[in-house]
């Protein structure tokens, strides 16, 4: 086992060296921007195609279930999705289980609306072209409620406007009325949405998650409970690539490549060191 004092000092030194190397690997690529070629992953393509095939005026229920701490991974996804919706005239209806992200979601809507104005000359108005419904407590109960009665769960939206009679919500009042449900989640909400929402209503479901929970989505994806998903910053980059609007996702890919290579080299180096020690019979350690 570990712990003699010398080992701990070496351990601390190694740790800090790794920190510095990682910091450099992330900072340096910021100043370079070579063209990065990559093919979007199939999971992401199916989400993109689903939205791209929608008609103007179709509604998509989006749950932005994250907060500022996961901003780096999920905010680019939100932006890409919102831009895509605004471009196609699809109406995103945004709900959340995480109140702490609300300020971010408002910002995302405003930014995407400005982009729509500058890129396609579309004027995006809250309540008509999108609905930011905001937060309600209750976790699974919120989903159970939305599954049947969205306007009952949200009598008013985030801007205190009544949802009944709202243009953006015309013709939708339960989950099955939506063409698609997308959950951008930093936690376990995807599974809640599947179990208590889309599996019951039959609405197609997609998700975007932080990279840590993306591997857990494969069973749902392969069983058809989900049409596709975006995992981590790479998922966002793929979507941006499909949408042809490069932003933070694609911009981060070089740093991502660099840091991954560094970590792989560190790990392989350490292994080579270990095997070399074994082979040449170092007595210490």
């Amino acid at each position: 086992m570990r712990t003699p004092e010398i080992n701990r000092k070496r351990f601390e030194l190694a740790r800090r060296c790794v920190y510095v190397v990682i910091a450099l690997a992330v900072i340096i690529p910021y100043f370079f921007n070579p063209k990065q070629e990559f093919k979007p992953m199939a999971e992401v393509v199916s989400v993109y195609e689903k939205i791209d095939a929608m008609k103007p005026g179709d509604q998509v229920l989006m749950a932005f279930d994250y907060d500022p701490s996961s901003e780096a991974e999920l905010y680019p996804m939100s932006m890409a999705l919102l831009r895509h919706c605004f471009k196609k005239g699809v109406i995103p209806v945004i709900v959340t289980h995480w109140f702490a992200g609300l300020g971010l979601f408002e910002k995302a809507c405003n930014e995407a609306a400005e982009d729509a104005n500058s890129m396609w000359g579309k004027k995006i108005v809250s309540g008509r072209d999108y609905a930011l419904l905001g937060f309600r407590p209750g976790w699974t109960d919120l989903i159970v409620k939305i599954e049947r009665d969205l306007k009952g769960a949200y009598e008013t939206d985030y801007f205190k406007q009544p949802t009944r009679g709202m243009k953006a919500l015309e013709g939708v009042n339960s989950l099955e009325d939506f063409e698609l449900m997308i959950d951008l989640a930093a936690g376990a909400t995807v599974e809640f949405w599947i179990a208590y929402g889309t599996d019951k209503s039959g609405t197609p479901m997609a998700a975007g998650t932080t990279a840590v929970s993306a591997p857990d989505l494969y069973p749902f994806y392969k069983s058809g409970q989900m049409i596709g998903f975006m995992g981590g910053l790479r998922g966002a980059a793929d979507y941006e690539k499909l949408l042809k609007i490069p932003d933070r996702g694609e911009r981060g890919m070089l740093a991502q490549s660099a840091a991954h290579i560094i970590i792989i080299l560190l790990v392989l180096g350490a292994n080579v060191h270990m095997f070399a020690k074994r082979l040449f019979g170092n007595k210490r350690d």
Binding site: V18, I22, A259, V267, A270, N271
Partner: peptide, 14 residues
């Protein structure tokens, strides 16, 4: 990010 890297570096030994 730092912790993940240092954990990988320290413990990924075949």
């Amino acid at each position: 990010a730092f912790f993940v890297a240092s954990a990988a570096f320290r413990t990924f030994r075949a």
